[in-house]
Computed example of a mutant assay.
Amino acid sequence: MAHIGRGFPSRPVVTSRPHPLDAVSTLGVFAVGWEFPELTVTTPSVTIGLDVFAIGWEFPPLTVLYDTTIGLGVFSVGWEFPELTVDVPILPGLKITRDGEIEWRGELFSLTNQFTPLADLTGWEDHPGLASGNSEKAQDHGSEPGQDFAEERVVSGVIQLRDDQTFPDSLKRIRRLLTVGRDETEYPLVIRLREETLLAYGKINRRVPTVENVGIGVSDISAQWICSDPGRYSLLESGIHVTTASPGTVSHDGDVDTKPRLRFHGPAVIPRVRVAGRTLAFNVVLAAGEIFNVDCKTGTTIIGVLDYVPLHDFSVPITDFEIPPGDWEIVYDPDSGGDGGMDVFWRDRFM
């Protein structure tokens, strides 16, 4: 028996296989990590600059399917850096480890190698001669006392070359070290006596080798150095940061005045610094971020490419700004600004 009513056709079902599709897909945030090898540089002062370099990576092929969750498999990131070259100055005295050793221009003269210092060093502990500042009295005995200044330091020693195997090479090596320089440049001379290591700067004045025993690989070479600055210095340079709100204390453990290096940080108007009754001031305005370097030993002043900065009217000459032995308060007092403060660097100086 037939039923009366309405009939509904069945809903068709269409299926399709997933198929590749060229599409632009947006990836969520993910991290790429890398690790650089540790870089260690031992130097008094160095700036390392890297050339421009590119970091490249490659991702695995990405296939997108309908109704599919997209996932990235493990992949690696590779890069290549240019070769890193760092040129640093020789740290004077770095090779010295025992009493009696001498280091000249980075070369060690020691019992531990073929260049042995003999026990006849002169001029190192001696007080140099004096250039008297006294003036004769016109109508009386004696003279009027004046400021005395030490003359240049002359250091003499004998280095025994003992090398029966490669004597010609060793002789050329020490001859090259103990020869006249190309210009007025002085080089570090470091000597350790009685556990005290001190530094001076000088030039070779004389080299006299003996020739009697060269057949058995031995020559005693007399050497003489002349140091225009008679002072001898500590190997390490001390330094402090001083602000306008907080004066600093300079502790100079030597026995004669030493000339510091100064570094002023802009902004500052008429940077001025005082220590031990002397004031050094410059007629200059430093912009924010500018660095002003002053070397009181050489008298040089540098701001960027500018290598001359005029003194203020009430300033002492640059080379007269010195730190006496002992502990001294140092005050930074520019006309205005000076929030960045200043740095003071010095070495203990011994006569």
Rank of each mutant, 00 (worst) to 15 (best):
I174R: 04
V180N: 07
L178G: 00
R207E: 07
L171H: 09
R194W: 04
Y233G: 05
C227S: 14
P230N: 07
G202W: 01
P230V: 06
S222L: 04
K203W: 05
E186I: 01
F167T: 05
V214Q: 14
V208C: 01
E237M: 13
G217S: 04
T243I: 00
G202R: 08
I204P: 00
D257Q: 08
N205S: 11
P168V: 10
D255V: 06
A223C: 04
L199N: 14
S170Q: 09
I226V: 15
V190N: 10
Y233F: 15
I216C: 02
R182S: 11
E237A: 15
G202N: 10
C227Y: 04
V190R: 08
P209D: 11
V256Q: 13
C227K: 11
S238G: 05
Y187F: 13
K203T: 14
I204F: 09
L198C: 03
I216Y: 00
E186M: 08
G202H: 05
A200F: 00
I204T: 09
V190I: 13
T166H: 10
L177I: 05
T197D: 03
Y201H: 11
I191S: 06
W225R: 07
G181C: 06
T243E: 06
E237D: 08
N213P: 01
V256T: 14
T166P: 00
E212A: 11
L178A: 14
V256P: 02
N205Q: 13
G231N: 14
Y233M: 05
Y201G: 06
I174Q: 03
V242L: 02
S246C: 00
A245S: 15
T249M: 05
L178N: 01
S170F: 03
R194G: 15
T249E: 12
R207Y: 05
